[in-house]
Structure formats: C-alpha cells, structure tokens
Design a protein around this nucleic acid. Structure first.
Length: 465
RNA sequence: GGUCCCAUCGUCUAGUCCGGCCUAGGACGUCAGGUUUUCAUCCUGGAAACACGGGUUCGAAUCCCGUUGGGACCGCCA
C-alpha cells in the first residue's frame, strides 16, 4: 500500500506554526515511507477564505522546504460532494433539518444547564415540518440499532472510544452545494486515497463524526494519528495572545527555515537519542510515529533562538549576507561593503536576523554617553588620558593594522596604566561603538579605517569635556 | 456542564511498549568558575524532575486502579 497523507489547512488566516508542524510530520511520514504528501486547501467557508491566505500557506510551506506532491482546493470540487450528499439523502442516511439557529441555540443552552451533552437529535428525519424554510443537511446518527460507542485505534494514543449518544444528528452541509468541514473532509480523504490521517489533537472530537460519515458512505476507515498540541507559556493552545503564531512572522524576524523546521519537529517528536540538530534528510530517516509524544509541548522561543544561532554559525559567510538582504535592506545602501566586513562578527553574535539592529554603530555615528567611556577601575581623567594616547597612535597611519595597533595599545597600558589593558581598551571600544557591549575595539577600528576611527575617538574626547 | 485527551528537571525530551543496566541521561534556559578590555563565543562545573495515593511484584519512572492537576472539543468555522 502506498502511503498517502495530507495536510488540510483552511485559508482563513496566515499559516500557523501548528499547521506547519502538522504539514512537516505528514511530509516526514510520506518521505520516510516513499509515499505521497498532499496539500488540500479547505476553502468551503466562502465568507472567510481569502486568496492571500491561500498564497501565504503555499509560500510558507515552500519556504520550509515542505513540498507537496498534489494540490487540491475544495472549492473546485463541489460537484463531488453534491453527488455523495444526494446519495446519503436518498438512502435516508442523511436528512434535512429545518430548525432555526435560534431554536438550536436555546436547545443547547437548556441541555448544558441540565448537565446533558449538548447535541441535536432531530425529529425532522421522520416528520418533516409543513413549512420548510431554510434547512440544513444532517447525518442520521441517532436512529435506532446504533451501537453504543464509536471506537478507533489511534497510532499515537491507542484505543479511543466515544459515546455515540453524545454526538447527536450533527450537520454535514448547509445545502447540496455547500458542504461543511466534516463532510467535505471525509469525502476528500476517501477520493484522494488518504490512508493515514496525521493531524492535531484538537481534531480528536471530530474523529467519531468523520468515522460515522465514512461508514454511511461505505468508505474504509483510514489510520489516525493525533499529534500533541503546540502550547503557549500558560499551557493552553498556542494562539495570538501568546505572541507570534504565523510562520511568516518568524520568517520576517529572520529565522532560518532549517532551524525552524528542526525546532518544530522536536516539539512533540524525538528521534530517541541525544541528537537535536538535524538536517531534513536526517529527520526523514529517523522519523517514526512511535517517537511522538502524547502531551502538548510549549513553544520555547529561547530554544528556537539558540537553535537558529547554531544554524547561523554554520552558514557560509557569503550565504549569510545573501540571507540578510530581505530583512535589512538599508544595510545594503553601500552595496553591502560594510556588512561584508563585519559578517564574521555578526555571525557569531546574532540569534536571528532581527538582532542585526545591535550593529547600528557600524553604519552610523553612535550616541555616546560620556560616563560609559570611563573604565570601572579608572575615572574621567584616566579615560581622557587613554583616548589622548590612542589618538596619538592613530595619527601615524602606519600603526593602523591589527597586530601593530594591538601592540601600541598594550604598550600604552604597560607604561601609563600599570598594565591595566582595560583602562585603554574600554574607552576605545566605547568611543567606537557607544555601547556597553560590543566587539573588540581593534577589530572594529580596522573595519572603520583610520579616518573614521580617529573621528570617533576625537568626538569621544570632546564629549568627555 | 458534557465528551475526550494528557501527566519525567522552569522548558523540549531519553528511559515507559518488552519492570531490574536509572544513585533518572541529553539539550535550552539558569547559576558559578575559566578565557577576554566589555559583551558574545568557547571551556569546566553546579542546582534542577519520575504529580499524589493505593495495588501487582523479590524489585516500578516503567504494569493496574483511583485521586489530583492540566488541556482540547462541544457552530448552518475549519
């Protein structure tokens, strides 16, 4: 049997990291077993579905390197659902219900108040009303001779059992040409020969309904595997109030697809050993449904950042520069000259491209807080003295070379500051960067060039007063 | 409220299926120390968990039951 799996997002929002992970697991499973991975856009909700989201979903998956083998849109398949709907109606396995929304709502409220399961058992399947206004199609679930429970084997959780009488005669379509999620979903999974349904745990309650639909239609039941949810800090399902949930947000903030995919894969899955940094193909060969966790996993941004930094460190510098372009266009105003000089510094210091802002002093004059120029073991007098000596060294352009400069500075420290190099290096560094934390001043000076370095030192001197 | 699902360090997890090798391993984070002019990197070390209670057993993180806790879903959304 050829493995066929799918991810079925609805284009009613940007690609969610949860959806991306579900896609990844399906893709991994398909690749592992030499099967097919299908992308099915579930756009039956005409009101809320938007082309822009459809696009965003495809872009996001492509960016992550999750390539689909087949693509479908439910809006293009309405005829298929209509035929199956007719069949069900003819066989009396489905029926029209004419209760109003208002009636259904008050029924539900009453049931919850009475501590009953909220569901609708409809008498219209036997006695249709005189006046047929509106109406939707429901599955005839609650007829007699129905077994007590709907049971399925979940590949991750084992046997899951639902009480049938809590399901009610649930809705499957608004009209012949307007199928609802559960129905369209089941029809498509059958039509597309999907044999393994790997999706989020939030779909567990839908599963018995889908099984009932499949049975009514005479379809075989696929295997199910319900993934644990991705959680926010408070252990509830990851949502916007927890921060960024759209994959595109992470893309924009400058996370690498390799890092993101690696991180997301480890949210609820483990290859079993201590290996964490993995390539796509390593993940494919290690992937197994058995390595999937049952409990939800909190999305830990700190660990993502760490992992991203690991990937950034491994990039070829030229590749990093290229990748940086979309996130920091303004840094390329000079043709990327400065950036290519500092790329090695950037590479070991940033965790995501958005951290690039920390390097602003390479591109424009920094604000200098005079107090910061003062080395902790010294005073304003000492800072002035150090900068004055440094300036003198810089006057002789011959000294302007990494090793030479370092030797001169060390000499100053030796002669004038009792060997305390901090007294020299600290004010120099702050004069160049204006920052409490920044790279080594000599390294920066070499990048700035003699002229700019002198200017900044002089400026710092002025500011010291 | 109803129906389901889940439970190892703060977080992600290994170990659980096939009980002993677990004085519970790794990673992120955190703390301390080293390197360094500072930060970052890098290196070394530390603190940190089997939710609880009963069984079963010579022996339980691992099997069973219960309790507690957390979560998801309950739409003419998907």
């Amino acid at each position: 049997m050829e493995v066929r799996v799918r991810v079925a997002p609805s284009p009613t929002g940007f690609l969610h990291v949860g959806t991306a992970r579900a896609a990844l697991f399906n893709w991994l499973f398909a690749r592992k077993h030499g099967g097919k991975f299908i992308l099915r856009i579930e756009d039956t909700d005409r009101e809320r579905s938007k082309e822009a989201f459809d696009q965003d979903i495809r872009d996001g998956l492509t960016w992550l390197g999750i390539e689909w083998d087949e693509l479908y849109r439910q809006s293009e398949r309405l005829g298929v659902y209509r035929d199956y709907l007719r069949k069900l109606l003819e066989e009396k396995k489905a029926f029209w219900c004419y209760h109003t929304k208002f009636q259904l709502e008050s029924e539900r409220e009453a049931q919850m108040k009475n501590k009953e399961a909220p569901r609708h058992i409809c008498e219209h399947k036997l006695n249709p009303p005189e006046e047929k206004i509106g109406g939707i199609i429901r599955l005839n679930v609650m007829g007699k001779n129905r077994a007590e429970a709907v049971v399925f084997e979940d590949l991750i959780r084992g046997t899951v059992e639902f009480k049938r009488n809590t399901l009610g005669d649930f809705s499957i379509a608004r009209d012949l040409d307007d199928p609802l999620y559960n129905f369209a979903n089941v029809v498509d999974d059958h039509e597309m020969n999907i044999n393994h349904i790997i999706r989020g745990e939030d779909h567990i309650p839908n599963t018995p309904k889908q099984i009932l639909i499949a049975e009514a239609l005479g379809f075989s039941i696929p295997f199910f595997a319900h993934l644990p949810l991705i959680l926010g800090e408070d252990r509830s399902k990851l949502s916007k109030r927890h921060g960024a949930t759209a994959l595109s947000d992470y893309r924009q903030a400058g996370y690498l697809p390799e890092a993101l995919i690696n991180f997301i894969a480890l949210l609820g899955w483990s290859p079993g050993g201590n290996k964490e940094i993995m390539t796509r193909s390593e993940m494919v060969s290690a992937f197994s449904l058995e390595g999937i966790q049952k409990g939800g996993a909190i999305f830990d941004l700190k660990k993502l950042r760490w992992m991203n930094s690991e990937y950034i460190k491994k990039m070829p510098p030229q590749g990093l520069i290229e990748s940086l372009k979309p996130t920091a266009k303004d840094l390329f105003n000079d043709g990327g000259e400065i950036l290519s000089k500092i790329i090695h510094l950037v590479q070991e210091r940033i965790e995501a491209f958005s951290d690039l802002g920390e390097f602003h002093y390479f591109f424009r004059e920094p604000e200098i807080t005079p107090d910061l120029l003062i080395w902790k073991k010294s005073d304003a007098q000492g800072a002035r003295k150090a900068l004055t000596y440094i300036e003198a060294v810089l006057e002789d352009a011959d000294n302007f070379e990494d090793e030479k400069l370092r030797n001169r500075l060390d000499a100053i420290a030796e002669k004038e500051f009792e060997g305390d190099r901090g007294a020299v290096y600290w004010p120099f560094r702050v004069a160049l960067s204006g920052q409490k934390f920044s790279p080594d001043p000599v390294e920066m000076a070499v990048i700035f060039g003699n002229k700019k370095t002198r200017e900044r030192v002089q400026r710092a001197l002025t500011q010291l007063g």
